[in-house]
Simulated scan of single mutants.
Amino acid sequence: MQRITITLPEELCTELDAFVQTRRYDTRSEAMRDLLRTALRVTAEAEPEGEAMGVLSYVYDHHLRDLASRLMDHHHAHHALTVTTSHVHLDHDTCLETVILRGPVRDLRTHADGILGQRGVMHGNLFLIPVESQDHGHGLAHHTHLHVKESF
C-alpha cells in the first residue's frame, strides 16, 4: 500500500469527518478509499455516444494566478462546441460561469474535464442532454432542428 498526502480546505475536511462518523468508518483513509473507488467506477462507466447539448457550470477563484487566462485559453481551443457563456461575479474572489455546449458527447466531456480539472476551480458539473439533428422544411425553407432524445 502507498501513502499519499492531500491538502483539504477546512470546510471539506469537516464534511469528510462528518461522513466518516455518519458512515462509521474507523479512519479517514478508509472513507477516502471508498469515495475514490466510487468516483473511479462512475468515471469508468461507458461514455454515451452521439450528439448532446451540455450545460457546464463551475465556480472558480479569479484571483488565482493565471487561472482566468488558462480557462479562457481552454474555451478558445474548443470554441466550436460553445453556444453561449454566462459569467457572474459571486463575491470579491469567486466567479460562476455557465457554458451551453453542443457537440459529440466525447468532445463535450473532454472540454469539461479540461475546465473542471484546473487548480482553483472549486465546484463544477457537466449536465448532458441527448439530442439528434433532424432536417425540417417549410416549402423551400429547409433547416435543421435538434430533437431531444429520451436517452443516449
Rank of each mutant, 00 (worst) to 15 (best):
M1V: 09
Q2H: 12
Q2C: 04
R3H: 13
I6H: 14
T7Q: 11
P9S: 13
E11N: 10
L12T: 12
L12I: 12
L12Q: 13
C13N: 15
T14C: 06
D17K: 10
D17L: 06
A18R: 15
F19C: 03
F19W: 08
Q21D: 06
Q21Y: 03
T22H: 08
T22D: 09
T22I: 04
R24Y: 01
R24D: 01
R24Q: 14
Y25M: 02
Y25W: 04
Y25V: 05
Y25N: 09
D26S: 15
D26E: 11
T27K: 07
A31H: 03
R33E: 02
L35V: 15
L36W: 07
R37F: 01
T38I: 04
A39T: 05
A39M: 13
L40Q: 11
R41E: 02
R41Y: 03
R41T: 04
T43F: 10
T43A: 14
A44L: 13
A46I: 11
G50D: 01
G54I: 00
G54W: 00
V55Q: 07
L56E: 03
L56R: 03
S57V: 05
S57E: 06
V59W: 14
Y60G: 01
D61A: 06
H63F: 06
L64K: 14
R65G: 02
D66I: 05
D66E: 10
L67G: 01
A68I: 11
D73I: 05
D73G: 01
H75P: 00
A77N: 00
A77E: 05
H79D: 05
H79Q: 04
H79E: 12
H79W: 06
A80L: 08
A80E: 13
L81K: 05
L81A: 08
T82K: 08
T82V: 15
V83L: 07
T84E: 04
T84M: 02
T84F: 05
T85K: 14
T85H: 12
H89W: 08
D91I: 08
D91K: 15
H92F: 07
D93T: 14
T94S: 12
T94E: 15
T94Q: 15
T94D: 12
C95T: 05
C95F: 10
C95M: 09
T98F: 05
T98H: 06
I100K: 01
L101E: 04
R102F: 02
R102Q: 08
P104W: 03
V105F: 00
V105P: 00
R106M: 04
D107C: 05
D107F: 02
T110H: 14
T110S: 12
H111M: 13
A112R: 03
D113M: 10
G114S: 04
G114N: 04
I115P: 02
I115K: 05
I115H: 09
L116V: 06
H123G: 01
N125L: 11
F127I: 07
L128T: 03
I129R: 03
P130K: 01
P130D: 01
V131I: 15
E132Q: 15
E132K: 12
E132R: 10
S133H: 00
S133I: 00
S133M: 00
Q134E: 07
Q134N: 08
Q134V: 06
D135C: 04
D135P: 06
D135M: 13
D135G: 09
D135L: 07
D135E: 10
D135W: 04
H136C: 10
H136D: 05
G137L: 05
A141D: 13
A141S: 15
L146V: 01
V148Y: 00
V148K: 01
K149M: 00
S151Y: 11
S151W: 10
